[in-house]
Write a protein that binds this DNA or RNA. Sequence first.
RNA 1: GCGCCCGUAGCUCAGCUGGAUAGAGCGCGGGACUUCUAAUCCUGAGGCCGCAGGUUCGAAUCCUGCCGGGCGCGCCA
Length: 573
Amino acid sequence: MNLYPRFAGHVADALNGLMAGGDLPAGLSLANVTVEPPRDASHGDLATNAAMVLAKPAGMKPRDIAVMLAQQLARLPDVASAEVAGPGFLNLTLDPGVWRAELAAIAAAGADYGRSALGAGQHVNVEYVSANPTGPMHMGHCRGAVVGDALASLLAFAGFQVTREYYINDAGGQVATLARSAHLRYREALGETIEIPEGFYPGDYLVPVGQALAAEFGPAYVTAPESEWLVLFRTRTVALMMERIRADLAQLGIHQDVFFSEASLGNRVQEALDTLDARGLIYQGVLEAPKGEAGEDWEPRPQTLFKATQFGDDSDRAMQKSDGSWTYFAGDVAYHWDKLERGYTALVDLFGADHGGYVKRMTAAVRALSDGKVPLDIKIVQMVKLLRAGEPVKMSKRSGNFVTLADVVEEVGKDVVRFIMLTKRSDSQLDFDFAKVVEQSRDNPVFYVQYAHARIASAKRKAAEAGIVLPPADLDRLDATDLALVKVAAQWPRIVEQAAEAREPHRIAFYLNDLAAAFHTQWNMGNDDPARRFVIADDPGLTAARLALADAVAQVIRNGLAVMGVEAAEELH
RNA sequence: GCGCCCGUAGCUCAGCUGGAUAGAGCGCGGGACUUCUAAUCCUGAGGCCGCAGGUUCGAAUCCUGCCGGGCGCGCCA
């Protein structure tokens, strides 16, 4: 069992013992009792707030409870000291043997160190990317793709069963426009000189699509009315675009399990509507005119509406247009209905910032459809500002002038892109500067973390080159300074659980930065004091112990990077 | 008008499911090299955590109101 849950158990046992012995009133709730590392390392290795939390319900003074608890905990063989501090904190200092044991545990668990059973029995669907199939992936899609993928990996590492999913918006007006744009390129491929009207997709990427269509159909549809080719061309073009999008995603190391087509929903939409209707949540009505500036040509019309307001939305939402066709929202409701029917215990969607206004109605729909039993967590992913040496790079899909994901990956590499996308909370804006992300300096976390890992690999190479014959590592050779590094590495299982619970993969990146900093600090002590080096030629025993320590740090770095989908570097150049 | 997000050091941001003296990087001052044991490290200065109330033993964190910035708000997708 991991360190922190183990000691949380010790604290709970001690408190229960005090209750059983009559020193504390029976039946106190321990729900708010925490056992965590204190912010300040000088306070010890673990701190619990138990005395302060329990003081009021127990009708006792915090310090009195803390003293009793300290006496109990001090008896544990792993506890070196237990001291009451501040308003009633209980600080525990652990026996150094605990950290040596943890070091051995890291080595024994290897790539599984930090894996958690937090999500055991739960099956989460994470939907991300879901870019319209109207062109290749550009940098606007990138962040959601990486954050979603890392979140999925994080949840999997935390014990959840995870399905990674992509929703293909292949049914609306935009893909019809795409099909018309492809038809133009088709005619172009057959020798016509074309002009691309305003509102069509002008990008070069449709040229090969036109060629493929020309090769498949010959001139059959050049002058045919749109009704004869639109659906066909749409299907072909979307399929080719999706092929390309999948290839783009593969370059980023992203492979999703399910690609769900909006066009394939069919009568699922009616089913979802019926389900809501059966619960009395559908009615015919007229929405109020929207406030604000966009209300000039608005006319009141009766529509089929979903009672979203009953589930916390600000307005009821249209499912069916006045002409009887479905709204986009209706399709999305049906899609989530489908997900629910597939039996997930929780749903996660990643939305771009421009879809923030959509969150309430979607969560309302899922709440209605699942009787509130399946939570939908929508993560908003903010825009990425692309910079080149401080100057903004302009992008516009409409004009066909955008920076593709493939270009960026080719320029700076998959690992850099992925890491940088996780260096901030996903709901705050992110700058991506081509110059800075490849810089080899302290303020580039990609480099900084990789450098720590590379240094460890280097130390091991150096030891081998020097012909040092390593005995089995005797961890007793490690002193308090060495063990400080183990304490940071030992945080990893906690970080995994906290990040998974908060569904915030960026925490992994921040933690790795901290771990790397702790390692670099240790490493640099060797500059001033050769006895603190990791490789000491005339002391193979100490070298073996130190390399075991370094190995554990490297292992945790690799495990963290693996969750982020980044490969650990053996050397940097 | 309504809704959502944000406001933390000069700058970029962590911390926000309440804990002890609010952290990191950059930049600025001082120090250790000349590159996988200096791509790094150490050290110093720098904060009404937007403002005002409230809840609590305890608030950057939760609640309310305000101020400031961003985004969204039709039957588009």
